[in-house]
Amino acid sequence: MLGQVNSTIGVFFDVDDTLYDHLDPLRFALQHVLLLAEEFPYESAYHRVRYYSDLLTEQNRNVNAVDGVAILEEMRSKRYILALEEFGISLTKEQAVEVQSQYLARQFKIKPYDGAIVLLKQLQVQGVTVGLITNGPLEHQMRKIKSLCLDDVILDNHIFVSGGVGLDKPDPRLFAYVNEMTETTAEHSYYIGDTWRNDVVGAMNAGWNMLWFNPRNAQPESNHTPHYIVKNYEEISRILLK
């Protein structure tokens, strides 16, 4: 797909649930705090937690980029309360806070999806600018990036964390800023991400090429049409490296 590759072409990845499985920490937290059975529909609950997380982020625009710690903590608790209510589970504020605590503790025991690191290196060998664009507080997201050893692969100045930049996805200005800082263009930039509201809408509104990473068969939330829909890194590699 990239044709004659060079450093003016950029391929950028989301981190959470795009470069590693984000469901594992959530499953652990819900089981640990709420003692939920193995049969509970964790994947469906995960979709709803992510939905409310993105919705609350949009409602509190750029909360990761300002001194909004109290607001961020409130949002994190509220997403569990709203999501689990759909499954007939009423969480107290204290339980939601504990779920978040256990979720965070587990987030750093993670590993990349099969084929992810290999693809990043192959793209770099072909001369492509490869980077990360992720929402969240700078220190927190960098801890995950280091846990995944992505900082050994991606150049420091190609890692863009919303809390450090001052803009959150889906704000198209964040994607424009990435283009400016990496000397790439929207027309020749590709984004791989899993969430509809932040990743698909954000990248496409910025004029980027979008590969929607959708291994859990989530449903679209608007009339945006991603250029590609992919379920694993074998599919991503076939598209990007052909």
Rank of each mutant, 00 (worst) to 15 (best):
T184F: 06
S7G: 05
L167W: 10
I239S: 04
L26N: 06
Q122L: 08
L104V: 13
W196T: 02
F108Y: 13
A96S: 07
G163N: 11
A186W: 03
D114Y: 08
H22Q: 14
S90F: 08
L138I: 07
Q59N: 12
I145K: 09
F28S: 06
D17W: 01
L91V: 05
E183S: 14
L35E: 13
E139T: 13
P220R: 06
K109I: 08
T8E: 10
R106Y: 06
R50S: 10
L150R: 08
M1N: 13
W208A: 01
L19V: 08
E94V: 10
T18M: 01
E183H: 14
G164A: 06
P215N: 03
K111F: 08
F87L: 03
P226E: 05
L119W: 07
I192C: 04
D21S: 04
F13K: 02
L240T: 09
R173H: 13
Y177Q: 12
G164E: 07
Q100D: 14
N179S: 05
A203G: 03
S7F: 01
P137Y: 13
K111A: 14
H22L: 11
E86S: 08
H47K: 15
D14Y: 00
C149Q: 14
A65Y: 03
V49P: 05
E180R: 14
L155M: 07
I133L: 02
E39T: 15
L123R: 08
I110V: 14
M210H: 05
V11L: 01
A105S: 13
P41Q: 05
H224I: 05
R143Q: 15
D199N: 01
V178A: 04
L241P: 12
Y191W: 00
P25K: 09
Y52W: 14
L2K: 12
M210G: 03
L104G: 12
S44G: 13
I71T: 15
D199K: 00
D171Q: 03
E94R: 11
Q102V: 07
D199H: 00
Q4P: 10
W212E: 01
Y177D: 10
E98A: 06
R50P: 04
H22G: 07
F13I: 01
H32V: 07
M75Q: 13
A206R: 04
K93W: 11
E38F: 00
N62D: 15
L56Y: 14
K242Y: 07
N62P: 02
R27V: 14
G68F: 06
N6T: 08
A29G: 11
I110F: 00
T182W: 02
L82K: 12
R79K: 10
S162G: 11
G115F: 03
R48Y: 14
G115H: 06
L119P: 11
R238D: 15
D152E: 15
K109G: 02
Q122T: 09
L167N: 09
K121A: 09
T184D: 10
R76L: 13
Q122D: 12
N198K: 07
P25E: 04
Q102I: 00
I110A: 03
R173D: 15
D156F: 01
Y191R: 00
T225D: 04
P215T: 10
V33S: 06
S237D: 12
